[in-house]
């Protein structure tokens, strides 16, 4: 575009300043609208969690009161007492902690071993094996579920044991992939330096790679822990006594075994959700960083 010559330069400056002011104002208004909307949406997404919290402190009459109480007028811990005394929440909580912790440690260990091999070592068949693993991620879990169930319950006789809960989840292709992504960002020259420094191959892994991969291990560990804590279907299939149930399985018993006890349901939901929310708030930066590692397009 050609700049037009202006007859009155003073007038033109005034015009330009006006335009500039208008642009800035629009921008400010736009930003304000954005903030308002984002805050509203955040509140909106918290509503279910807040409703859960509020309902868990109501007694059974307050929960079905008309008109409904948004906040409990007389907060009580009745519902929590019920889930601990009748339900067995303490035991479920313990089971979930044990299963999620052990699964996480094993998973992270195997994933870091394999992730290191797939990202940094050269050996015949490496890419083929990796693609076999990766393509298995497309297969939905339902396909392998039944034979897995028969294998664990009938062949290995592990029904209703911690082993049975942990064993099928010891290796996850997703974890291996995440670790491979993370480790390929570590410089290979350190591995060469380690070899020249007379370090054994496993020593290189243990003394050089693992310490450097700590942030990645933390990310994977957290995601795996939350994943196993929240896992429902396998524990649901493999446990058949109340004392072996994990928290997620236990929660559903308030739905199906005790008649529609919403107070207990919400108290249980709090027990399930709050630990994870605390973990999230404490380790936020790992969560937010971790999401992008796994999703790098190959």
């Amino acid at each position: 575009m050609e700049l037009k010559s202006v007859t009155d330069p003073q007038y033109q400056i005034l015009l330009d300043e006006k335009k500039d002011f208008r642009r800035k104002t629009y921008k400010k208004i736009g930003l304000t609208i954005i903030y308002i909307f984002l805050v509203l949406w955040a509140v909106f997404t918290f509503v279910p969690l807040l409703w859960m919290l509020s309902s868990s402190f109501k007694d059974s009459s307050a929960i079905t009161a008309v008109p409904p109480e948004l906040l409990p007028k007389k907060p009580t811990l009745d519902a929590y007492k019920r889930i601990f005394e009748v339900g067995g929440m303490a035991r479920w909580f313990l089971n979930s902690t044990i299963v999620a912790s052990i699964s996480t440690i094993i998973n992270v260990f195997f994933a870091s071993l394999a992730g290191y091999a797939f990202s940094k070592l050269k050996f015949p068949g490496r890419n083929t094996i990796f693609w076999v693993l990766l393509s298995s991620m497309m297969i939905p879990g339902q396909v392998t579920l039944i034979p897995l169930y028969i294998l664990v319950v009938n062949t290995l006789q592990l029904e209703n044991t911690y082993f049975g809960l942990i064993v099928p989840g010891m290796v996850s292709v997703g974890s291996i992939f995440l670790m491979k992504q993370f480790m390929s960002s570590l410089p290979s020259s350190l591995i060469d330096a380690g070899r020249i420094d007379a370090c054994s191959e496993f020593g290189i892994f243990r003394k050089i790679i693992l310490p450097m991969a700590k942030p990645g291990l933390a990310v994977l560990g957290i995601f795996t822990f939350v994943g196993h804590w929240n896992n429902f279907f396998w524990p649901f299939l493999i446990t058949n006594t109340n004392s072996m149930r994990t928290l997620q399985v236990g929660l559903t018993s308030f739905r199906f075994e005790n008649l529609q006890d919403y107070g207990a349901m919400m108290a249980g939901a709090v027990c399930s959700a709050v630990p994870m929310i605390i973990v999230f708030l404490a380790l936020q930066k790992y969560f937010l960083r971790g999401i992008t590692i796994g999703a790098v397009k190959g």
């Binding site: 410089p187 350190l190 060469d192 070899r195 310490p211 450097m212």
Partner: peptide, 20 residues
């Protein structure tokens, strides 16, 4: 012969110092 037994030492382009 493995690198460690070759009586050599190497300086890398990116220095390859163990960061931890």
């Amino acid at each position: 012969v493995h690198p460690k037994d070759r009586d050599i030492a190497m300086v890398f382009q990116d220095y390859a110092l163990y960061p931890h």
